[in-house]
């Protein structure tokens, strides 16, 4: 994430050679920092500073990873845990994009629609989703839909707010200029509003993806027997901190990968980001 921001900053200040040099060495600094922390982490365990139950060493986590890859965790292969979680988050996230973006855009264009939905969106958005779990079970039961719903509700609201905000951010003069040229409502939307809002839409979608991925743990606390979030919670119950650590590392890496994927998609679909 920081790399992406640094890259964007570098594009703008391309003239300053020294800045560019600093930007180029940043990945190196990051890699070195991560390696140093991992080394210190390993040393803490190897030298007995911290007990293995409190902080399993990277070597132990790696060993656990190998074990789980071979035999699975609780009769479910590790790849299945990963796949189940990605599928849960992915489906809910896609549904959130497909419903949240149109609703947000309409709210941005029409003050009446905005006034209609705003109270609910603003009330639900900051709500800790863990608080919804008992209700979700009573309403939707303990099946997959409950898990889907928790992730969906967490992501869709921030997408709606982001999309509405993106429309509002489009300059009045740009709209007026288009109006003067006599564009139809559709043309206004297709050729003025959409291109102008897409960069910001991508940003809110990207943030929402992060939120959805973090809600995974809450979702998989509902009667799950597979998935990375469930694995972390369940292993914690038995103080299997090595499995917890492994789950955290996997969640982190996959989350990072998904974020990169969105950034990549943004570069392809909205190459004008940052030049508007």
């Amino acid at each position: 994430m920081s790399e992406g921001l640094a890259g964007a900053a570098g594009d703008r200040d391309g003239a300053a050679a020294t800045r560019a040099g600093a930007v180029r060495s940043r990945p190196l600094v990051s890699v070195a920092a991560v390696l140093a922390v991992v080394a210190l982490w390993q040393a803490a365990g190897s030298l007995g500073w911290i007990g293995p139950a409190l902080l399993p060493t990277p070597a132990e986590v790696l060993q656990t990873g190998r074990e789980l890859a071979e035999t699975g965790y609780r009769q479910v292969p590790l790849w299945e845990h990963i796949l189940v979680s990605v599928a849960r988050a992915g489906v809910a996230f896609l549904a959130a994009v497909l419903t949240g973006v149109p609703l947000g855009l309409v709210m941005g264009v029409s003050p009446t629609v905005a006034a209609l939905f705003d109270p609910f969106v603003q009330f639900l958005r900051p709500l800790p989703k863990l608080a919804l779990i008992p209700l979700v079970i009573v309403w939707f039961g303990i099946g997959e839909f409950s898990k889907f719903f928790l992730i969906y509700i967490a992501t869709v609201l921030s997408i709606v707010v982001g999309a509405a905000g993106a429309v509002a951010a489009v300059g009045q003069e740009r709209r007026r200029a288009a109006a003067v040229l006599g564009v139809s409502r559709y043309q206004m939307f297709r050729h003025v509003l959409l291109p102008s809002t897409l960069p910001e839409l991508f940003t809110s979608v990207r943030l929402a993806l992060g939120i959805g991925w973090t809600t995974l743990i809450a979702a998989e606390m509902v009667a799950a027997t597979s998935g990375l979030g469930w694995m972390v919670v369940n292993a914690g119950a038995y103080l299997r901190t090595d499995v917890v650590m492994l789950g955290i590392v996997l969640l982190g890496l996959i989350g990072y990968g998904l974020d990169r994927a969105i950034v990549g998609l943004q570069k392809v679909m909205v190459p004008w980001t940052g030049h508007a």
Partner: peptide, 21 residues
């Protein structure tokens, strides 16, 4: 002090750490 700093640092290195841990 080291143990504490380390515990925090190692978790900073891996995002999405559950608060309980």
């Amino acid at each position: 002090w080291l143990a504490r700093a380390l515990a925090v640092a190692s978790l900073l290195a891996v995002p999405l750490a559950p608060a309980a841990l």
